[in-house]
Each structure stands twice: as structure tokens, then as C-alpha cells.
Computed example of a mutant assay.
Amino acid sequence: MAFGQDGDWAIEAQGLVKRFDGFTAVDGVDIRVPRGAIYGILGPNGAGKTTTLRMLLGIIDPDSGVRRVLGHERPTEVARRIGYLPEERGLYPAMKATEAIAFLAALRGVPLKTGRRRARELLEENGLSYAADRQIRQLSKGMAQQVQLLGTLVHEPELVVFDEPFSGLDALNQGKLEKMIRTLAARGTTVIFSTHVIAHAERLCDQVAIIAGGKVPFAGLVDEARDRLRPQVRLETRARDGAWRAALPPDARSEGAFWHFTLPESGVEPLLRALIEGEAGILSLSIERPGLHDAFVAIAGEAAARALQETAQEAEKAA
């Protein structure tokens, strides 16, 4: 994979490898994130998501491979243009929410006075103005996480990187975060986030990288991942037998009054013709496109899918 033009991609990585004490955590990852996209890195715990993000941002260096962020091969040179929310949350407990956000802004070169003003604006915009003068230790876990999230955005970065941003948030605040991510993308900000929850990736992402065992078996458009599987048909007929059954594909299985099978490559029209001519008596017919979960199983395998589900269950218990 050759690097493209600077204006095409927010992030490019080729052949990233990282080992820790002889263990290969990331093994030859290739990723391209278009500018202005919402890009998800989807996989279970231990898949290599956090290590990949840290290499992309220059927090750690790869053992081999190359990466370029916002046109720079040394990501630390553009750190002030990036907002990063790590998986391990951490704010000074004695700081007030406004000061905590302003402090994070100052680390990215924003004058303290400006940071305080932006902090109060962000807190008000997100319904948290009542927390502005409260210490972090006085906030709930979810509220403190929202404060750190705002601190990630206060310097108005052009690239935002979230590591498991939905972890620890209740359903209401997860919805607020999804809305915030869409708003950022609408303004032209590039958003990349890691997640073990397929639903977030499916609802939000233009493109995803599926990662399992440190490898990326798929990176591209969500629709391309789903198109690896053919649509499924659910057919209900009045007649239970007849010549029309010969038109059903070999994988057709009967469940009560319904037939379930993969849509034939010839499409639905020849099938409909055979059903009508054979007097099957069509009561209902629906075609369901495979979801991202089905694509994940097909691409990453059953073991990775089970690990993804176990990660989600563990996260729910910890929340």
C-alpha cells in the first residue's frame, strides 16, 4: 500500500507490527482513514485495538511498518491538531470540571483564559453547566467521563481518536455521544474510535477495520463487509408442496409455514415467477441484508465473534 496524496487521508498505516516480551500484539496492520470519515476499529479485548491506536498517534513506536497522520510521518509533530481519549480515563480529582477541561486545552496550546471560556461553553452545550464548578471527585463516573470527553474536544482538533468511548456510559449518554460524533463529522472532523460493540460501529461508521488476534482481515466500507454475505430470504406460502419447490435453492429449510434460504445469485425475479406459476400461494416474502455482526463472524471467525460477545458482557457487568 503506497501512501496517497496528503489531502486524501487523515491516517495511513502499512504493515504495523508491535511485540511485547516476545508476544506479537499487532501483526501487520494496514489502515487508511479518509479525512472527514467516522472510522471504527472493531474487535474484542486483546485484539490489538489500543496498541494500534497508540502506534498511530506516536505514543509508542511500531517495531516495523510505517504510518502517517495528517500528512506527517511523525505523529507527535501534529499532536495539537489531534484529540485523544484513552481507554484509561484520568482527571485530577480535586480539579473543578471547568479547570480540568481548560487544563487539557492548555496541554494542546490553548491559552488558559480561552480554555476556560470554551470549557463553560461546552459544558452548557452538553447540558452539564451545573457541573462546571464541581470537583471531579464530586461527579459520577459517567459525568467525569463526559468531562474528559469534552477535554478531548476543547482545542477543536481536526482528528479525534476515541479508545472505547462508550465503555462505562449508560444508554442515554451513549446516545448523546453518538450524536456528538455525528456532529463532529458533519463539521469535517475525522473521528476514529475503537469498540467491541457492533451496534455502535454499524450505526455510526462509514468504514471499519475488523481486528482479531492482532491482524486486520478486513478494512473498508461497512457495506463492503456486509456484501460479503448474500441476503437471506424469508418466504411464507399457502401451499406446502408442489412443483414450485424445485425453484427453492439447496439451502432452503422449512420452519413451520416459512422457508428460509440464501437469495439466489440470479435474484428474486426468477424465483417469484416460479412460485407464481407453480401456485405456491405467496403469503409473504422478505429479503434481509446481512448485518455487520454476520459479516464479522464470516470475516473474523466464530472464535473472534465469541470473544467479542464475552467482551461486551464483561463491559456491561463493569458499568
Rank of each mutant, 00 (worst) to 15 (best):
A2R: 13
Q5G: 08
D8H: 10
D8E: 15
A10R: 12
I11M: 10
G15Q: 12
V17K: 10
V26F: 10
G28H: 02
I31M: 13
Y39T: 09
G40K: 12
G40I: 04
I41A: 07
I41Y: 08
G46S: 12
A47H: 06
T50I: 09
T51E: 03
I59W: 02
D61G: 06
P62Y: 00
D63Y: 02
S64L: 01
G65N: 01
G65P: 07
V66Q: 09
V66K: 00
V66I: 11
G71A: 09
H72L: 10
E73L: 01
T76P: 08
R80H: 14
P86Q: 09
G90W: 01
A97G: 14
A105P: 01
A106P: 01
R108L: 03
G109C: 12
R116T: 11
A119K: 06
E121V: 03
E124V: 01
L128G: 02
A144E: 12
G151R: 15
L153N: 09
P157L: 10
L159I: 12
D163C: 13
P165M: 07
G168K: 02
G168C: 10
L169M: 05
A171M: 12
K179V: 06
M180R: 12
M180C: 05
R182T: 02
L184T: 02
A185M: 08
A186M: 03
I192M: 15
I192Y: 04
S194G: 13
T195W: 06
V208T: 11
I211P: 04
G213D: 08
G214W: 02
P217R: 12
G220S: 05
V222Q: 08
A225R: 00
D227Y: 02
R228L: 09
P231D: 03
R234D: 07
R238P: 00
A239L: 05
A239H: 01
D241Y: 03
A246H: 00
P250H: 02
D251Q: 03
D251S: 01
D251C: 12
A252W: 05
G256W: 11
F258E: 15
W259Q: 05
H260Q: 11
L263R: 02
P264F: 07
G267Y: 06
E277M: 02
G278T: 12
L283W: 04
L283H: 03
L285K: 09
S286C: 01
S286T: 15
S286F: 04
I287E: 14
L292V: 08
F296I: 03
A300L: 07
A300N: 15
R306A: 05
Q309A: 14
T311I: 03
Q313E: 15
A315K: 02
E316M: 07
